[in-house]
Simulated assay, not measured.
Amino acid sequence: MRDVLAELRPHEPKLLSYIGRRHRDPSRAEDILQETLLAVMQQSRKHQIDSPLAYAYRVADSLIYAQVRKDRREERLGDADYGCDLPIADEILEHKQRVAIFEAALLGLSPVRRDIFIRRHMDDQSRQDIADALGMSLESVKKHLVRAMAELAGVMDQATGAAPERRPLHARQ
């Protein structure tokens, strides 16, 4: 049995140069050369190869063409094909943490203020409807809403480490 690898060793630089010229990405030439030598060696164990160098050139061409076909398929796919609009796990966790902080801050409001806030922002009732239902003046409902928003914003700012939002003096109550 012949050692085809020993026969090909002196021709490796010439084969590498050939692969580098034929392939669009010369940086892959070394990898293709190694794959070529492996394929020739494996085939020589099954069948006798009369001209290992000619066979190596044929194998190299086949590997180059296969790589080019693979690259074309990958180019057509692109990153946009794998895009996902769903949030990543870190974003989901961060959102859940903000919701938990907000719920705790909401529970920290006085019962009347919490009730007014929930009716307005979660049940979508008008300020006048809330005032009528609770037997309060419209101005009292507005003040409770403003104060609830300020308290909730303060807690959220503090929890996230954000600087408190600057509000005009007439908005602070």
Rank of each mutant, 00 (worst) to 15 (best):
A80L: 13
Y82S: 15
Y82D: 14
C84D: 14
C84A: 10
D85V: 13
L86N: 06
A89E: 08
D90I: 01
E91Q: 03
I92D: 01
I92G: 02
L93V: 05
E94G: 03
E94K: 03
H95K: 10
K96M: 13
K96T: 12
Q97M: 13
R98Q: 14
R98S: 15
A100M: 03
A100Y: 00
A100E: 05
I101H: 07
I101T: 13
E103W: 02
E103A: 05
E103F: 04
A104N: 15
A105N: 08
L106D: 00
L107A: 13
L107I: 10
L109F: 08
L109S: 06
P111T: 02
P111S: 00
V112R: 08
R113C: 06
R113Q: 10
R114I: 04
R114S: 04
D115A: 08
D115V: 05
I116W: 02
I116E: 01
I116N: 01
F117L: 11
F117G: 05
I118A: 04
I118M: 02
I118V: 08
R119E: 00
H121I: 06
H121W: 13
M122C: 07
M122S: 05
D123N: 14
D123S: 12
D124K: 09
D124A: 09
D124V: 08
Q125D: 08
Q125W: 07
Q125E: 11
Q125F: 07
Q125V: 02
Q128F: 10
D129T: 10
D129M: 07
D129V: 08
A131R: 01
A131S: 05
A131Y: 02
A131E: 04
D132H: 13
D132C: 12
A133F: 04
A133L: 04
L134A: 03
L134P: 00
L134S: 00
G135P: 01
G135I: 00
G135Q: 00
M136C: 05
S137D: 07
S137Y: 04
L138P: 09
E139D: 09
E139M: 13
V141A: 03
V141L: 02
V141I: 02
V141C: 03
V141Q: 01
K143P: 04
H144M: 14
L145P: 06
V146H: 11
V146Y: 09
V146C: 13
A148Q: 08
A148P: 10
A148E: 07
M149W: 11
A150C: 12
A150F: 09
E151R: 13
E151Y: 12
L152K: 10
L152R: 10
L152W: 12
